[in-house]
Nucleic acid binder design. Sequence first.
DNA 1: TCATGAAGCGGAACCTATTCCGTTTTCGTG
DNA 2: CACGAAAACGGAATAGGTTCCGCTTCATGA
Lengths: 215, 215
Amino acid sequence: MKEVSGTDSALSTGVSLPVHGQGEAGAERSRRVDAVRNQGKVLDAAERLFARDGVERVTMQAVAKEAGVGVGTLYRGFGNKAGLAMALLGERERQFQELMISGPPPLGPGAEPTDRLTAFVAGYAELVADQLELVLLSQTAAPGARFRSGAHALWRTHCRHLLSLAGAPSPELRADALLAALSGEMIAHWLTEQDRNLAEITDALAGMARALSTK
Amino acid sequence: MKEVSGTDSALSTGVSLPVHGQGEAGAERSRRVDAVRNQGKVLDAAERLFARDGVERVTMQAVAKEAGVGVGTLYRGFGNKAGLAMALLGERERQFQELMISGPPPLGPGAEPTDRLTAFVAGYAELVADQLELVLLSQTAAPGARFRSGAHALWRTHCRHLLSLAGAPSPELRADALLAALSGEMIAHWLTEQDRNLAEITDALAGMARALSTK
DNA sequence: TCATGAAGCGGAACCTATTCCGTTTTCGTG
DNA sequence: CACGAAAACGGAATAGGTTCCGCTTCATGA
């Protein structure tokens, strides 16, 4: 089971926290120590319960109880259930972002745009598949909410940039379209309702990425 | 305001009705007359309230009350709120299906596969944009539920077929990917959060469809 | 150290979608 | 027409996400 580093794994994935974004925008005044501690307790509790009972069957009440806090605290810290999922996803997303921004080619800098894009698509699909339940939950938020998360903005910018370098028309819209094909719902559908394996999926997606890179 | 033909506009768009599918599969025994009448009353009431107050702010209770039936009747007839939306969408979807299957080219038969596909994509995007609120609601159902609707199956089959004729690799996955780019959430995002106009969107989507048609 | 106001807390209350189940209506049969 | 089973009904009850608000704790600075 993955470690989400108890105390400060918190989020850097934005989510649009009600109080202050913590990581999304520049740091303001320091948060109160009890608040930080509670966020950590909540993330631990959520991870534990999600792993044990499945994301869908864990209620916010249950998470609050397991963490030893009130539900109000959950909502102040994460906004809603989807936000909690995004925060849990944060750790792994950051790892992938790292590789994408400064890791070795073809995912990282140094390869041809099209190759970087196909590497991104394959890697991201794998990330989604690995964390399917959490991704599905995170994309459950109000329609369009996911587009506003800091994490998503990064994926989009990256794709747009690569498409742009490759000379593709409408790089912005194509970036969004590509990411739409990488939604949890889509991957879940291919994986579970059409019994495709991840390799098939990433191959096909890489092909699409290549096709969309073309002028 | 659109007429949903009071009595029998019902659905032919499937939705996975709890009791019997009514139109999805071959007709079984005839439904009870009171049930048919109630479905009509519900559709009328829903359309009226949705138009007046906005889809999001209309509760199932309110629809039931306006229709003069109990909530149980709503759920027996449409499964859930998303199902109700799908049923309301049905009318216009059927019109588009008609054009797509037997209308004039390039949407209908007779044109090159790629041209038919771009026509489909543009037309479908327009349909979604026109009915944005209902589409968003209909896609709110349990993750993946939309892939199981009869309507969606038809769109997918059509795209897959055209992509296949055009010689594209992985026509099935590409069809799904194309439809993912046509989701209500995606179109809404482009339209409202990026102030694109429909023409821009359909142009870009048509370009993508063309790119994806390529071997 | 103490006062003070902001930040955070807990958990009851709220709002809705959805389910359940006892009652009523239909419809085919005898 | 009368019956009985099946199909529908209605609306109270349930469940779980989210909001609200009075109370506590922390951080600051005098």
